[in-house]
Design a protein around this nucleic acid. Structure first.
Lengths: 356, 356
DNA sequence: CGCATCGTGTTAATCGATTAACACGAGGGG
DNA sequence: CCCCTCGTGTTAATCGATTAACACGATGCG
């Protein structure tokens, strides 16, 4: 009745050997004789002992066989984001050979004015996560989650250029410039940049210097700005985190009346696709009445004929994984190439625009 | 220097208190005086102590704050499968409030004729996973991974009807019947069922009684078979695990020559979408020259006008998550409704078919 | 004033394993 | 015959925390 779960010790006693022998039988077969191992395994089977307990083992060895994944956005959104899933696929590919588990670590909102205890609660899952390393996307050095990992001594690979330490990045600023030059070259002088910001989608905000922004957005905006002629009007808005809904509400807000821009530069294909949908509702032709660019070059971009910046997302994830599990992998920062893919969603700016 | 990582003990010594006090300071603020807590936290900060070590803590408490996710398919595929990501989103939603992490556990191929040690190695990650519970999709009771979890005493929620124990399911057999009746009613007497099987996509196999099949496929096929008139020709094939590639190679293999069926019942919208692509290549009109059904009713189905079986995937994931984290949640089996959604991809069978 | 209660701190047992170091008998080589 | 090595088993220290039980002074109450 009161049968507790069998442990290494109970198996050892039942088999009449020391705990060391049982441990070796499971973890280092060459260290014990074949007979001893067979007996231990038999006894273990009879007792319903599944093998050394993961928690005890990992406390002793210091290893967990898992790496963490931290997203800036809630997990619910993350799995629906094609950029994220592509990166995850690459990451999973790198981890597969070593059968390393992948731990998705959620955390709550963190912002400047929060009390220390509140912040601590938000990143509680980061404290509790049992991992040998982690990858994070779009988290700055001063983000509490990054701080905690550093204190815990857990190796972290990131994919933002603003990161000190190991990272796999693209040149976001240059990519921003590429987009800007392309649009400027087509004559656009009234442009809206549509970015994702770390809040629930649905509320449209005008992005100012104070608005918290993902590091990559900041860099792309810098590139965009510095590539545009001085007489260009550039507004930056956001409808929240990267999602169709955010793109939709932002597009609805900006695509009407005399304030309508001639081009929208969206920070992801997901956002751009949503804008394309709203443009269709409004009877605007992409590449004519409205020019539109995306980012990432996900499959949806080709389907929509979307001008976008291609980046090797799968490879990014793969390399991040390698840096964690392969001690021989290169350290430091790896910069991957991007490429502006021009399709029919961008075209010359209307030469004369009539207010209404 | 030889500075090791600070522990609860070193903080206690530095602060001149007992380890209990330090532990309480971090985990049960109400158990210590405000001053003591402040001193401990200060000292911890100076020493760079991030808080109680996750491994030690979880060994002692027996809890991990994480639940596992086990897929029949490799993680690389999993993240690209819309059914999977929808389920994950639901699952993540259920776990969010308790900030529970999600652990993706990979495992290698397992099949009948493997040596015990080989099997053990394949499910090694299941042994090592530090989780309080797990969800699994499409794993039968006798699957090694399921066995290991049972021995380890880890609660498992599954989504297959063949599962003993807690599960959130749909009536796959009934769904199969619905599809069969629909096609039979349209006059189809030569049907190919296209299913996913647990092997790398690319190789097309004719499914026989011996072929290893996912539990849900088996049930749907049973339903399909029993709803078809006796004079119906039914072939079952697979191009491997659920993916566009598998659907494509299977469709290519079956959609040519005089052996061409009048209808294809695919086991997922992903497979069906791939078939639709091949049909287009071959100049076959869906709903006329070829009838096609899918499964799941993912967004792609509406886009393609695909007749399919709708199931509440997000809700499935959500409920599975609740059953794990919420002690008050209902136990046992929850059956969710399905609905045959008829669109234009199915139509009357061609009354006369010419061989070539 | 005596006693119960409360707040706050400490002691020490415990969670379940890994592995360096050692012991000991058998076999091999000189 | 002695010594060395090899194979195999054991001993015991250790990983880093949690928490029941207890101790003790201060406070409240009758």
């Amino acid at each position: 009745m009161g049968a507790r779960k069998p442990t290494l010790r109970s198996v050892a006693e039942a088999a009449g050997v020391s705990t060391a022998t049982v441990s070796y039988a499971f973890s280092r077969p060459d260290r014990v004789s074949a007979e001893a191992r067979a007996r231990v395994l038999t006894v273990a089977g009879e007792l319903g002992y599944a093998g050394p307990d993961a928690k005890g083992r990992s406390l002793r060895t210091g290893r967990t066989g898992a790496v963490g994944v931290i997203f800036t956005t809630g997990l619910t959104y993350a799995f629906t984001d094609p950029y994220v899933t592509a990166m995850l696929a690459g990451l999973a590919e790198a981890l597969e050979p070593s059968r390393t588990s992948l731990v998705f670590i959620p955390f709550g909102e963190v912002n400047a004015g929060m009390a220390p205890d509140e912040v601590r609660r938000s990143v509680d899952a980061v404290h509790r996560a049992m991992i040998d390393g982690a990858v994070a996307d779009g988290l700055d050095d001063d983000h509490p989650a990054v701080r905690v990992l550093a204190e815990r001594g857990i190796p972290l690979v990131r994919s933002n250029e603003t990161a000190a330490g190991p990272s796999v990045v693209i040149d976001d600023r240059q990519a921003g410039r590429d987009v800007g030059r392309h649009l400027a070259g087509l004559g656009h002088r009234d442009i809206v940049a549509l970015v994702a910001t770390p809040h629930e989608p649905g509320r449209v905000v005008e992005v100012t210097g104070q608005t918290p922004l993902f590091p990559y957005s900041r860099l792309r905006l810098t590139g965009l700005r510095e590539s545009l002629p001085a007489d260009t009007r550039l507004r930056v808005i956001s409808g929240g985190s990267n999602s169709a809904l955010a793109g939709q509400v932002a597009a609805r807000a900006v695509l009407h009346g005399s304030e309508r821009p001639t081009a929208i530069a969206a920070d992801s294909d997901v956002l751009a696709a949503a804008v394309a949908g709203v443009a269709r509702e409004r009877g605007l032709w992409l590449g004519a009445g409205l020019s539109l660019t995306g980012f990432d070059d996900q499959p949806v971009a080709a389907e929509l004929g979307l001008t976008t910046v291609r980046q090797p997302v799968h490879r990014k994830g793969f390399l991040m994984g390698r840096m964690l599990v392969d001690p021989g992998a290169e350290r430091g920062r790896i910069t991957l190439p991007t490429e502006l893919v021009v399709r029919r969603s961008t075209g010359p700016a209307p030469s004369v625009r009539l207010g209404e």
